[in-house]
Design a protein around this nucleic acid. Structure first.
Length: 650
DNA sequence: CATTGCCTGAGT
DNA sequence: ACTCAGAG
């Protein structure tokens, strides 16, 4: 709720939570989440990561180096930056600025090669770039975080070279270890556990980190004497400092063992950590104390804040006609007096408002009990290629599909080394057109050859222990055929991509289905009520045994007809095998067995229902009338939709 | 100021 | 199946 007491522009209230009272309860409690007054999170990102990867690969140190993707510069190491080279320069300009510049082109796939490589001759017409090496190096860095910070939580892998690390837990441990008296509530404490902690003992910031100054410094290159002499003055400061020590150790480790320098920001929440990570780059870390937040943030363009860099930020800037955090803060405080603001603005209003007050509410917090951050594993995998010369003949598709399939095969099998049962549910093929040609093209084509508007096609991807280039390419080619149909002439595809979605490790149920069909299933799914062949209930039976034991012979005709659905005579509903199961096997017998399992399960459902009907009245009389929380039906609005609704309300 | 090649999740 | 938004 936006607090409505916050009328006017009381200055003190803008940041009244920068020095929150911290009590014994706070330090002894462990699950306060984003509201923890001792929360500490860091964002750690690698400096000029792609360039650093190439330096490590080539054993280069300190030489100016850039990484190329075709004609464009995608990474510039710090020595090269000294020559004024940036990502947006042309290769020619870069060479002129620094004749001894090392130029490395990213690895590429070429047709027929299962693995990407650094070839002498590359050609964007026949090759596609590969970022796999960087992905693997990134995984090494991430593994180092996990290994060296077992108690910290990798809160989010933000990108290939960035991760948020939540230090709250290890910091709390360190705090209690270093200052044992914190775990003892003094007997004379006036409010027991709710008594504020005594002031922290004098300590030192050390020299690991830069400090964002509390008072803005004219000469921002150096930290003022006053700042250097300062000491951590709150328990949160102490927490930040402890996190900084841990962060520093890992960063040094990563630099010496892997050769990558990193920069980190350490603050009370993610968005602040992100904002201060680049305060001093490269190879440095900086601490943003709560007390330093206002002076650091207020002059900042609010569109630099994570999630406000897009259309949402633009909409806000336009609506309020503001550009800095301070502008927007005061504007929104004024507006917030109106009750309707919140309802119209939706979730995003509250989120933006809290952000501006230097707090962070994870959007997850709006959902009742979603303790879960987003999964640390990728759920999709996409290989794409922009064509300089568009594909004009349907016959040219398979060439690129094969290249893309090679990349997907490599990447999926890479991922499978860590997580063996990884299985992509679907394969998606996109055939995109350039922006300008698109409508012209679809117009012409739909008139001339009936090439519909569909530009992507997807299908269940068959489960396979071995995922090979051929399997993927074959499935991809099939999609391609469906997509371009029998168009013989005028297609113009400038962008082609092939990807997996719904990547998961097969969980128990999926494994049992796969196992069932492969003949390794446990028999737990075979139901008592079928009343037949319940002998030999050993947990494992071979496929053949299962067939025999269940003694449900399939007539050749019914097997031949390949039945995939059934109707329940009791509830008159129809059930069919899921596309997933259908993709697992085309064998009629196996399908029929899967269908039988479904039938069993379904009649069990009716059985359970009838039991429930008998038992329910009893439970109602006996049990407490515990009110079941109704499912939250409130529809989740995307941030932008919320904003749009708000702005369109008049 | 921008390119390209990703990646995620929501919504229709 | 497709679009949009967002970050890097």
């Amino acid at each position: 709720m936006i607090p409505t007491h916050r009328k006017g522009k009381g200055k003190a209230q803008d940041f009244d939570d920068l020095d929150p009272v911290i009590t014994y309860r706070h330090i002894l409690q462990n699950n306060l989440g984003t509201r923890d007054p001792l929360r500490v999170v860091a964002l750690c990102d690698s400096d000029a990561f792609y360039a650093a990867c190439e330096m490590v690969r080539l054993g280069v140190t300190d030489k100016p180096l850039i990484v190329l993707q075709w004609e464009g510069i995608i990474a510039v190491n710090y020595p090269a930056r000294k020559f004024g080279i940036t990502r947006f320069h042309k290769l020619k300009d870069a060479k002129e600025r620094c004749p001894e510049l090392m130029i490395v082109h990213v690895a590429t796939y070429k047709e027929g090669e299962a693995e990407p490589g650094y070839w002498d001759k590359i050609d964007s017409r026949t090759h596609k770039v590969s970022l796999d090496y960087y992905r693997r190096e990134s995984a090494k860095v991430l593994a180092m975080f996990k290994e060296r910070l077992p108690d910290a939580e990798i809160a989010e892998k933000a990108s290939i070279d960035e991760a948020f690390i939540d230090f709250t837990k290890p910091v709390r441990q360190a705090l209690l270890h270093k200052y044992p008296f914190l775990s003892q509530i003094p007997p004379d404490a006036p409010d027991g556990a709710d008594t504020p902690l005594p002031p922290p003992p004098l300590s030192n910031w050390g020299t690991n980190s830069h400090l964002v100054p509390i008072i803005p410094n004219a000469d921002s290159e150096t930290t003022s004497e006053e700042e250097l002499q300062s000491t951590p003055s709150t328990w949160h400061d102490v927490a930040l400092q402890l996190a900084a020590e841990m962060m520093h150790k890992v960063r040094v480790d990563i630099a010496t063992k892997l050769g990558y320098t990193t920069s980190a920001g350490i603050a009370r929440n993610k968005f602040l950590a992100k904002l201060c990570a680049s305060y001093r780059k490269p190879y440095s870390q900086t601490i943003l104390r709560n007390q330093a937040i206002p002076s650091y943030l207020k002059p900042l363009e609010f569109q630099k804040i994570r999630f406000l860099g897009g259309k949402l930020g633009e909409a806000l800037a336009k609506e309020y006609d503001v550009s800095t955090v301070a502008d927007l803060l005061y504007a929104s405080i004024d507006y917030s007096a109106a009750e309707e603001l919140q309802t119209k603005f939706g979730e995003s209003a509250l989120w933006v408002y809290e952000i501006l007050r230097y707090a962070e509410i994870s959007l997850n917090d709006f959902q009742p009990d979603s303790l879960r951050e987003k999964s640390p594993f990728n759920k999709s995998m996409l290989a794409a290629k922009a064509l300089h010369k568009p594909i004009t003949k349907a016959a040219d598709g398979p060439h690129w599909i094969r290249v893309l399939a090679a990349e997907l095969a490599l990447r999926l099998n890479d991922a499978r080394r860590e997580r063996p049962n990884l299985w992509p549910k679907t394969l998606v093929l996109h055939a995109g057109h350039g922006k300008i040609v698109v409508f012209l093209l679809s117009l012409v084509l739909s008139l001339l050859v009936g090439y519909g508007t569909a530009r992507s096609k997807q299908a269940p991807f068959p489960f396979a222990q071995e995922v090979t280039v051929d399997v993927i390419a074959a499935a991809g080619n099939k999609l391609w055929k469906e997509l371009v149909g029998n168009v013989t002439g005028h297609i113009k595809v400038t962008n082609i991509s092939l990807g997996f979605t719904g990547i998961e490790t097969t969980d128990a149920s999926q494994q049992s289905i796969a196992g069932f069909l492969a003949g390794t299933s446990t028999v737990t799914g075979v139901k008592r009520r079928s009343g037949e062949g319940e002998n030999g209930s050993s947990p494992k039976r071979s496929h053949r045994d299962t067939q025999r034991a269940r003694s449900r012979p399939l007539s050749p005709t019914s097997a031949g007809q390949n039945v995939t659905s059934f109707a329940c005579s009791e509830c008159h509903k129809t059930f069919s095998l899921s596309p997933k199961i259908l993709s697992l096997t085309s064998d009629a017998r196996e399908r029929s067995q899967a269908l039988d399992a479904m039938k069993d399960e379904h009649s069990d459902f009716h059985f359970a229902q009838s039991v429930a009907r008998e038992v329910e009245p009893v439970v109602k009389r006996v049990g407490s009338s515990k009110k079941v929380e109704p499912a939250k039906t409130e529809k989740k609005e995307s941030t932008l939709k919320g904003i749009e609704k708000f702005f369109n309300r008049t």
